[in-house]
């Protein structure tokens, strides 16, 4: 029996918004440590890794490991039926072929339940080694979303260069070129607005804007975003999800012909 109860169903609504454009379907792997999801977009250029820890739920029970193949468009439809302040419970029997979502309004006057069929998805997992990245940049998530949006007007690719002076985002194309430089902020009173850069050695990598703009759909989940870069390996874009977990996007770089 699997049962997970979350007082803030808005977290799940935002998680779905953060992945539904990149992925059509995904397997939610449930165990006693929580819910994990790893999936690549259809082109295998990017990968999403979601982790929701069991201790972040108000109630969590998972008697046996359960892999739920989910069509994300269907789950999005169900999550749209939930109010932001509803309490959400996900329930599934062991080796179930369906999962039930229950939503309770805050005053308990409205109780809804939706049963969704599960899919048989083949499990393909990539092993992502713990990596000590050359550059780790933390910046306001809204700022990063704005940069990706603005630069994607100039070209299909963004060059992200990180030196000890700061981080530079560049794009060039038919209409011209654009550069956005962010310096490390000095002492800011609100840490959500800080830009911090830990650089072991400078890195400059090229990425497709399209995917970065998919990743920034996760912006409502966290006021800050963390970019981790090393030469010749995928970029990691991480958004914390409250106290319950995180969503990490990996993006393969574009390399010189």
């Amino acid at each position: 029996m699997f049962e997970a109860r979350l007082v803030q169903s808005s977290i799940f609504k935002k998680v779905l918004e953060a992945i539904k454009e990149l992925l059509n379907e995904a397997t939610f792997d449930c165990s006693d440590s929580g819910i994990q999801l790893q999936a690549m977009d259809s082109s295998h250029v990017s990968l999403v890794s979601l982790n929701l820890r069991s201790d972040g739920f108000d109630q969590y029970r998972c008697d046996r490991n359960l892999s739920m193949g989910i069509n994300l468009a269907s789950m999005t439809k169900i999550m749209k039926c939930a109010g932001n302040d509803d309490i959400m419970t996900m329930k599934a029997q062991d080796n179930a072929d369906s999962v039930t979502f229950m939503f309770e309004s805050p005053n308990q006057e409205k109780m809804s339940d939706y049963e969704m069929k599960l899919m048989n998805l083949d499990q393909e997992h990539l092993g992502i080694p713990e990596t000590d990245y050359s550059c780790v940049i933390k910046l306001p998530s809204a700022e990063f979303a704005r940069i990706c949006r603005d630069l994607s007007q100039f070209g299909e690719s963004v060059v992200i260069s990180c030196t000890k002076e700061g981080v530079k985002f560049s794009a060039a194309g038919d209409i011209g070129s654009a550069n956005i430089k962010l310096a490390q902020t000095a002492n800011v009173d609100k840490e959500d607005e800080a830009v911090s850069i830990e650089m072991q050695e400078k890195v400059s990598l090229t990425f497709a804007c399209r995917y970065l703009n998919y990743f920034t759909k996760a912006t409502p989940l966290s006021p800050q975003v963390c970019l981790s870069m090393s030469a010749e390996v995928p970029l990691v874009v991480e958004y914390k999800i409250g106290e319950i977990g995180h969503i990490r996007y990996y993006l393969a770089p574009k390399i010189e012909e």
Binding site: H125, L126, I128, E256
Partner: peptide, 14 residues
């Protein structure tokens, strides 16, 4: 222009 790589170039299936 640049060549887009894919995940399998960097990570192994487990």
């Amino acid at each position: 222009d640049h060549l887009q790589t894919v995940m399998e170039k960097f990570y192994e299936y487990v």
